[in-house]
Amino acid sequence: MSARLVEVFVSDEHIARAEAIIQRHCRRYWQEAVPGPKEKFSCIVQKRYVERLFTELDQNFGGMPDFLAMVVEIEALSPRLDEITESRLPLVDGEKPPTKMEAFFTRERMSTNELYDDIEDSLRLRPNYLLTVILSAVIAALGMRSGQTAVVIGAMVIAPLLGPTMALALASTTGDKILGKRAITTLGVGIAAAFLITFLLGMFISVDPSVAELRNRTIVQPADIALALASGAAGVLAFTQGASLALVGVMIAVALVPPLSAAGLFFGSGQPVLGAQALFLLLTNLVCINVAGIFTFLVQGLPPKDWRMTGGIFALWMTVLLLFIGLVGGWIAFGPIMPR
């Protein structure tokens, strides 16, 4: 559904100002008294307008103790609230009209507040997170070792690295240092846990590098870079439109979990060269996902806090990606950098 129910609570002395703001962003709303010196506004808002409504509400009431705003997803609505040219809300003061591309991509995007809310739980370092990381890595490792593609896909559905990966791209786009630090910490702990468990697994089982599922994780080709870029872009598009986390997890995990598990197996079985090559694929994929993620977030109109910071971060990721592409080009032209 392309609409949201936004409930706004303000103190009595701010009712008129709140109603004026709500009228600029909402088509349907109603007002009711609540216990205490407060008033509640219930608003039906098209998804694309939630962002600007929250921005103006925060600017006017964000620091007030009695202010509260929440967003609830609507499963069905009658009569419908369709987005057509004739029904577009007028622009607010100082707002630039969206380009056709921005209007197209922002129509179904969730607001930044909703994105932050969805990511919040996945950034907490809890036993459940570590357990799912370990299980995902073990399942992927054993599936690759036996050449069972379906088992590897099953490991991706668990999607333990989805949250911190999406959060890192989101933090890079918005320039949120606190979110970025939390994402790096959670992602780093997850990667370390997956590598350690597969390293130990590799010490006790035989690992045949000629198995296609494992061998493919030691080779970086242009197609792998394209896959990782597509995975990052598709993952962000699905995530910002409220798609199933399992679906988004498969998109992201296809580029992260298998090479990470393969690296642990190779290092644990005494094959460090192949392990290093698998880690190189992991790093390449991680960079690609962030480049594609930042680009897709920006195309969808996600507002950066500081364009200079966002531009610098994006330029840094692009520089690393170009460096990796150069290494891959040299690998193809002159053979592997490291002997197999």
Rank of each mutant, 00 (worst) to 15 (best):
S111C: 05
S136D: 05
A155N: 05
T185K: 15
T174E: 01
S146M: 14
A183V: 04
N113L: 14
L162I: 05
A167W: 01
M101K: 14
A159S: 07
P164F: 06
G163Y: 07
G190H: 04
G143M: 00
P160I: 02
K181W: 15
T173K: 06
N113K: 15
N113G: 11
A155G: 10
A171M: 04
R126S: 11
T149N: 04
K177D: 12
A103G: 14
V151E: 03
I191N: 00
V152L: 02
K100V: 15
F104S: 10
S122G: 12
P98W: 11
R126N: 10
G154Y: 10
L187D: 02
G188W: 09
P160Q: 01
L135D: 00
P98T: 04
I134E: 05
I158P: 02
T186W: 01
G143A: 03
K177N: 13
I158V: 12
S136G: 14
P127V: 08
R107H: 12
P98Q: 07
P127N: 02
I178W: 08
R109D: 12
L89M: 13
D121H: 11
V92Y: 10
L125W: 12
L135P: 00
L125R: 05
K96F: 13
L179H: 00
D176A: 01
L135N: 01
T112K: 09
P98D: 06
D121V: 05
T149W: 07
V152M: 03
A169K: 03
T185M: 12
D176T: 04
R182S: 07
R126C: 04
A169N: 04
I184F: 11
E95T: 06
T165A: 08
I178Q: 14
P127L: 06
E108V: 04
T174Y: 02
E114V: 09
Q148G: 04
A137M: 09
D93R: 15
S136M: 07
T149C: 03
I153S: 07
S172F: 09
P127Q: 05
D121S: 12
L170C: 06
M156H: 06
I153P: 04
N113F: 14
A103C: 06
L131S: 06
L135I: 15
L142P: 08
A140M: 07
G175K: 00
V92S: 13
P90T: 08
G143H: 08
K96S: 13
E108K: 12
L115N: 12
D117H: 13
M144G: 05
A150G: 08
G147A: 09
A171T: 02
V133D: 04
E120K: 11
I153H: 06
T173C: 09
M166D: 00
Y129D: 00
I158F: 03
M156P: 02
E102F: 10
E102N: 06
G147H: 09
T112H: 11
E114F: 04
T99Q: 03
G175L: 07
E108W: 11
M101Q: 13
T149L: 15
T132I: 10
G163D: 03
T132F: 15
G175Q: 03
P164M: 01
D121F: 11
G188T: 07
I158C: 00
